[in-house]
Each structure stands twice: as structure tokens, then as C-alpha cells.
Amino acid sequence: MSVSNDSYYKPEEALQELMLQERILCSAIDIQALLGLLVDKGIITKEEIDIFRDRVRNLPKYKNSIEEIERLKKGFSAAKDNPEAYLKAILNAKLNGEIK
């Protein structure tokens, strides 16, 4: 993991970004440990975890965020593949007042 390029010039933002990344990573580790314990003790199966994971992912609270992230990932992947078109789109959006 790393910090964004802009944050290298702003140590406070870089520290906050790293602390957020650390919190996310620690949460993921805790969740995997808990799920592993539940499976090892025979309380739940991996298949049941997958079913519940899909159920939770499809709740509007999470589904909308997941879909937005996927949409943004596709957009940035397209921008990476064709930076000229991306820059033209940004310029047009600026000229049209769609972004500041």
C-alpha cells in the first residue's frame, strides 16, 4: 500500500491516509480470523459464508456503493488505456461547467 502522490507533499494527509489503510487492513484481518474460527469450530461452513456475503452485498446500503466503485474503476481503466480521450473529456467537462 502507498499514499497518493499529492500526500507526499502533505505529511499530515499522508499520515491520515496511512492510518485509514491500516484500519482497513486490520479490520480485514480480524474478519478473516473470526470467519476462520467459526468454520474451524463447525459453527458455519464456507458455503454459508458465501451465501450471506452475497446477501449482504445485495443490500441497497452496500450494493449502491459497490456499483459506484465498479463504475469508477471502469472509467479510470478506460482513462488509463486512453489518456488522450480522458484529458479531452475533462477539458470538455470544464468548458461546459460540469466540473470545476
Rank of each mutant, 00 (worst) to 15 (best):
I99Q: 02
D81W: 01
F52P: 03
P83V: 10
L38S: 01
I43T: 08
Q16P: 09
K80C: 11
K94N: 06
L91V: 01
D54M: 01
L18W: 09
F52R: 12
K46D: 06
P83F: 10
E98L: 06
K74G: 00
E67H: 08
Y9M: 14
R23P: 04
P83N: 13
V3L: 00
F76S: 06
L15S: 14
T45W: 01
I43H: 07
I49F: 04
K88V: 12
R57T: 15
Y9W: 15
I29L: 07
N5L: 13
N96T: 05
V39E: 03
K63E: 01
A14F: 00
L18R: 11
I66F: 00
Y62I: 04
I66N: 07
L72F: 00
L95D: 05
I99H: 07
L35I: 11
S4P: 04
P83E: 12
I66Q: 00
Y8R: 04
A89P: 02
E22P: 03
K63D: 09
R71H: 14
N5D: 13
S27K: 10
L35Q: 04
A28W: 11
N96I: 02
P83W: 08
E68L: 15
T45Q: 03
R23I: 11
E70Y: 10
Q16K: 15
F76E: 07
I31F: 08
I99C: 06
L38N: 02
